[in-house]
Measured scan of single mutants.
Amino acid sequence: FSITQFVRNLGLEHLMDIFEREQITLRVLVEMGHKELKEIGINAYGHREKLIKGVERLI
């Protein structure tokens, strides 16, 4: 299971460039909250919320 699959499953594949540029893996994403996601350029609250909720389902 990769970050690419995870992001695609959430319908947020347009954010993949950010994850690749910042070298974010699923392991790193698990540790990130709204503040960190915003810092790397994910400005939409809804997108950040989707990512965080998606990660919570993985754990």
Rank of each mutant, 00 (worst) to 15 (best):
S2A: 09
I3P: 02
T4S: 13
T4L: 15
Q5M: 12
Q5I: 10
F6K: 00
F6W: 07
V7D: 00
V7Q: 00
R8N: 07
R8M: 11
R8H: 11
N9E: 14
N9L: 14
L10E: 03
L10F: 03
L10K: 01
L12K: 00
L12C: 05
E13A: 12
E13L: 11
E13H: 09
H14F: 15
L15W: 04
L15F: 05
M16I: 14
M16F: 06
D17G: 13
D17M: 12
I18P: 01
F19I: 06
E20S: 10
E20Q: 12
E20T: 13
E20A: 11
R21N: 07
R21D: 05
R21K: 11
R21S: 07
E22Y: 13
E22D: 06
Q23G: 14
Q23K: 14
T25D: 09
T25G: 06
T25E: 06
T25L: 03
T25R: 04
L26T: 03
R27N: 12
R27H: 12
V28E: 12
V28R: 15
L29T: 03
L29I: 06
L29E: 00
V30I: 14
V30W: 07
E31I: 10
E31M: 14
E31H: 15
M32N: 02
M32W: 07
M32Y: 07
M32H: 01
G33A: 04
H34C: 04
K35I: 06
E36R: 06
E36Y: 04
E36Q: 08
L37D: 01
L37F: 07
E39R: 11
I40R: 04
I40Q: 02
I40C: 04
G41T: 03
G41N: 03
I42W: 02
N43H: 13
N43K: 14
A44C: 15
A44I: 13
Y45S: 07
Y45H: 12
Y45C: 07
Y45F: 14
G46E: 15
G46C: 15
G46Y: 15
G46F: 13
H47M: 12
R48S: 03
E49G: 04
K50M: 13
K50E: 08
L51F: 04
I52F: 02
I52W: 03
I52N: 00
K53E: 08
G54Y: 06
V55F: 09
V55A: 12
E56S: 11
E56T: 10
R57T: 10
R57V: 09
L58Q: 05
I59Y: 10
